[in-house]
Amino acid sequence: MTTNQEIIKPENLVYRKPRLLNDTPMHYCPGCGHSVVHKLIAEVIDEMGMQEDAIGISPVGCAVFAYSYIDIDWIEAAHGRAPAIACAAKRLNPGKLVFTYQGDGDLAGIGAAEAIHSLNRGDNIVIIYVNNAIYGMTGGQMAPTTLMGMKTSTCPYGRQASLHGYPLKVTEMAAMMEGTCYVTRQAVSRVAYIRKAKQALRKAFEYSMQGKGSSIVEFVSTCSSGWKMSPEAANQWMEDNMFPYYKLGDLKDKQN
């Protein structure tokens, strides 16, 4: 019978915190999807050996401090303007892996114009879009992606079509554009989804380095604080309510 002390040896290590994720404690709420997406980015960039060649553009929103957590080069953009900065960074450094990291308020709200035109131009960047249907950082206000009937602090009786319009599907819009090469929607609530999401992220990064066009990887995520649920209940609520509207899977994959 082996004891735990006999198993805990460097040669038996099968999983640890990604090397590129540094020791700064992440400020995200317990169970936040952002942390898992950060972990995936760190893992994929490390596996591709791109640490020295990756430039991330961090947004305004919960992920504003992304530059503190992943040990690559970062630029902090004004609210919603990350794709514009990424476009410039990629055109000036065509050999670098350039990606933006944005939430739904940043990308689908204030930065919709930048994101759409960047995707349409085929800038060879990757847009990582974390959609939790709410403005998380500022206290849970209604976002363009808030589901019908969903209660937030600025629509306390639920979102109504007559008053607020309909939830915006940015990823579906991106799939219709000529400039995009890979458009996918993933989730990070279960082990199987996380494994798939990692493959999708890697594919998007590889396509961008091959110069195939822009990619958008949407992560349907939770906001346990904004939704006022436990992390576990938030994951379940997301699977029950968000997945029927924001369907997972590849929307577009331009192989050649």
Binding site: M1, I8, L13, Y15, G33, S35
Partner: peptide, 25 residues
């Protein structure tokens, strides 16, 4: 129940903060 773990890494993969290291033999 330390003896029961199979080192499947499920817990470590879902851990948002990367707190869990997994060893397997």
């Amino acid at each position: 129940a330390p003896g029961m773990c199979t080192g499947c890494t499920s817990c470590a993969i879902v851990c948002p903060d990367g707190c869990i290291s997994v060893y397997r033999t």
